[in-house]
Amino acid sequence: MVYRALGEFLILVGSLFLFLAGIGLLRMPDVYNRMQTGTKATTLGALSLIMGVGIYHPQWFFKTAIISLFILLTNPVSSHALARASHNKGIPLAKGSVLDRYAEDKERGLKEAENDS
């Protein structure tokens, strides 16, 4: 069966990504990097795992599609809110970070506010 093989492959890919996310949570140097492994990798991992199950058992496909849609809606948003909150709270980046676009953006916003007033 072709679809069975495809489902098994997707489940394997998903578990690999979830495994890497688990390692990343332990190994990454700061909050933002850990958040990246904890959300980016788990989004893809959970998506392919759940869709793999849906393809392996076609009668569940509709349900798993809805679950995947829900994960797609919630997971990135929650990680965005968490990362933004921790940046605003002033949690430092890891040593060796070279780019902090959000801090630049906030500074620019402050300057514009000063120019306006």
Partner: peptide, 18 residues
Amino acid sequence: RREASLIVKTASETLYPL
């Protein structure tokens, strides 16, 4: 209390009825 970002606001409006 800081205002939530546009992303969170939009997503919460989508998710609330769901």
